[in-house]
Design a protein around this nucleic acid. Structure first.
Lengths: 293, 293
DNA sequence: GGACGTCCATACCCTCAGGGTATCGCGCGA
DNA sequence: TCGCGCGATACCCTGAGGGTATGGACGTCC
């Protein structure tokens, strides 16, 4: 009953595409062997993972579970390999994943503070909009600056750094733009963006970056709820209004669970020491899960 | 550069045995293909994982990392498959892993309390001495009763249930048995047991269960530091004394990180509600990592 | 309603990844 | 110096896993 990672990779592709042909293309192979591999996987596991209709594919309950858990397992494999390779490097470095402009102005202080720590190593910055969390999960990065609740923090540990209220960005002349504030209910039927980093299930029009998103807002294609620091970068033709009942967005520093890296621990300490939110003081039983190292 | 789980499984076997022949035997294969597979893995990863001497094998730094992370990844794969299979079962159940006598007398109350929860499912008990943590990690169990610091909780979330002081168990007539208490320093040079569940690095004479251990104590082969509830089961010919400076042993309920199972969450709540230690009240940033579901 | 398009399954072939056996080479210990 | 223990090398051979061609079921459109 031992399942190969190859089969799991195939299954995840099919489960994500819900289409054997597209999945096969994505995997760089032909459709028939993929069909066969999935069928083999199902009989090795003795579980139906997919419901095939002649018009497509649906996931069974077991398939849903295998998709979620299988992604984690594949990330863990990739992370194991990457971290082992990094461990062989003669001069250790840290990789911090972040989004351009997504540091709430804290980055400089954090880097300075960390650089002052004895034993600090050089820090590489890896800019990405949609993959920062995945980069930490699969070992491409050691740390990431993320936003809660926008990012899915599954599989990561994190500490809060900074809390921002959110504002809605509207095109000038939008019906709601006349008031002084809006509520989430007002935005219920407005077209909203879906970030590539969105948790599964969130719907909306796909966007790839804040700049692109703001252009789409200006053109009246959608409205966007964003942290208020976006006001510094609003293009002409757009206005922002407070959202009375939007959950605040929290900037967090995230790192792989069970990290035992001294460097990661030092960096997290440096980051939280310049944070603007009060730090949790370790008194309870969960405290031991908080800091790596 | 994508590594197969098979290669990782091979590497973990070799890294654990530090001997190609034994590892090959354990894997049910011949030694030459194993050697070749490991060499392939090394060149695919472009990293030296092992130092071969003609008298044996040592791990490189990268090898140490790959061993630790690879175990987690393989557990994650096994867990993905097992949980998917379980999800297909028509009637859901919970599997609780525990050690015989390792419930500090709380089990009955916990099971009763959980059974009273609306939506409770049947609970299977899986008895094991050395593998309870691993069973949760690789999906064989949903929950486990473990002891901190004796068990390695890496990869698991947990809540404390019960704290016990530890006592030393000595054979009658042992030099230390005359006093009224001992210190850890007194025990420094005494032969101590090593449980199968010990964290890596801990040394001592291997034992497989409390009963066996107590017999070995009675025969004067070793001394043992155990939670004080063991006093109820002391065989004749042994005595117990308080250890003034032993870290107390904490009974914890542990479950897989990122579990989203309603049943697991309910069970954890039931367990903590009958616990004898004050529960952590969720106020800080790490609180969200505490309860599944 | 029949022709067509879409999508997954089946049939069949072919290559090489990965396993087996035999043997070598090296270094330690008696 | 001669085993002998252990990993590496050489060589073979099978089947897992990939490819192409085609079938069959089921919507869709004129």
């Amino acid at each position: 009953m031992d399942v190969q990672s190859r089969e799991l990779r195939y299954f995840v592709a099919v489960a994500e595409e819900l289409h054997f042909g597209r999945a096969a293309h994505r995997l760089g192979m032909a459709q028939p062997p993929l069909s066969r591999a999935i069928r083999q996987l199902e009989q090795r596991m003795d579980v139906a993972l997919l419901e095939r209709t002649s018009r497509g594919v649906r996931l069974t309950a077991a398939g849903e579970v295998l998709l979620a858990e299988g992604r984690l397992a594949l990330d863990a494999m990739a992370a194991a390999v990457r971290r082992a390779r990094r461990a062989a490097a003669t001069s250790p470095r840290l990789v911090l994943a972040l989004k351009p402009g997504g540091d709430a102005g804290l980055l400089m202080s954090i880097l300075d503070r960390y650089a002052a720590v004895p034993g600090a190593v050089p820090v590489d910055l890896a800019f990405s909009v949609g993959e920062r969390a995945a980069m930490v999960r699969d070992g491409r990065a050691d740390l990431a600056l993320l936003h809660r609740p926008q990012n899915d923090l599954t599989g990561l540990d994190s500490d809060d750094l900074h809390v921002e209220n959110q504002v809605v960005v509207l095109p000038e002349g939008h019906p709601l733009a006349g008031g002084t504030s809006v509520s989430m209910a007002d935005l219920r039927d407005q077209p909203q963006p879906r970030w590539p980093e969105a948790r599964p299930g969130v719907t909306g029009h796909p966007v790839t970056g804040t700049d692109q998103l703001l252009q789409l807002v200006r053109l009246g294609r959608m409205v966007a709820v964003l942290p208020e620091s976006v006001r510094d970068r609003l293009p002409p033709g757009t206005v922002s209004l407070p959202v009375t009942d939007a959950e605040p967005s929290t900037l967090v520093i995230a790192w792989p669970r069970d990290s035992t890296s001294r460097q990661v621990a030092d960096f997290v300490r440096a980051a939280t020491s310049v944070a603007t939110v009060p730090q949790f003081s370790p008194v309870g039983p969960t405290a031991r899960q908080t800091l790596p190292g």
